[in-house]
């Protein structure tokens, strides 16, 4: 290498694949910086993640539009009781380890009497089973659904955002509430007599 330096060849010819190594190193730094500095978050590997990540979910590998989208790692639940059917969902949509949306509507309003939604998590099951009986009042049922989703969002990183509660009866469906799970968390903590832990 001394001869190369002496002839100043390295200024004229690029002997090292410097650019590829530099970009690899930048990637490594970009993805691991949050291990060293907890205040720095790993950013998605593309510009403008809100729009770009959304495109991943709308096209398949051949570039065709995907007609049905399945949400992975999300929480939705539904149960039947004497007052009709109750549905509750969270609103977090994840693509890999990144949160794509915090406000997604996971319940599809098909018509006045039909709502469609898809996954239930065991965290939600625990709360749901322990508080369920057929003779719940409407308010109790709504609170049970909301509670169950809240406890799932508390334990599961892939669930979160806004908790939407829908009630379906012979008069059609009604959107009961749309609440931020973090606000619910502090509300429930206060009910328990706990200040933020």
């Amino acid at each position: 290498m001394a001869l190369v330096d002496l002839c100043r060849l390295d200024e004229k010819i690029n002997l090292k694949p410097a650019s590829s190594i530099a970009s690899l190193e930048n990637d490594v730094i970009g993805y691991s910086q949050n291990f060293i500095n907890s205040a720095q978050l790993a950013s998605p590997p593309f510009a403008n993640p809100i729009e770009t990540l959304a495109q991943f979910n709308s096209k398949d590998e051949t570039g065709k539009d995907i007609k049905i989208q399945f949400d992975h790692g999300t929480t939705t639940l539904g149960f039947r009781y004497k007052g009709g059917v109750l549905l509750a969902v969270d609103s977090r949509a994840t693509g890999g380890q990144f949160i794509g949306s915090q406000t997604m509507k996971k319940i599809v309003e098909i018509n006045d009497y039909l709502l469609g939604c898809t996954t239930i998590l065991f965290y939600a099951f625990g709360v749901l089973d322990s508080g369920y009986n057929w003779d719940l009042t409407d308010e109790e049922a709504q609170e049970l659904g909301r509670r169950a989703i809240y406890h799932a969002t508390h334990r599961d990183a892939y669930s979160g955002g806004i908790i939407r509660v829908y009630h379906i009866s012979d008069k059609g469906w009604v959107n009961i509430s749309n609440e931020d799970c973090s606000e619910l968390h502090y509300k429930y903590q206060e009910q328990k007599g706990l200040k933020d832990e």
């Binding site: 065991f122 965290y123 099951f125 625990g126 709360v127 322990s130 169950a148 406890h151 508390h154 334990r155």
Partner: peptide
């Protein structure tokens, strides 16, 4: 434990 954790979250005081 997975099934029980949310119950403890809910009812523990």
């Amino acid at each position: 434990g997975y099934l029980s954790l949310s119950i403890m979250d809910r009812y523990h005081k």
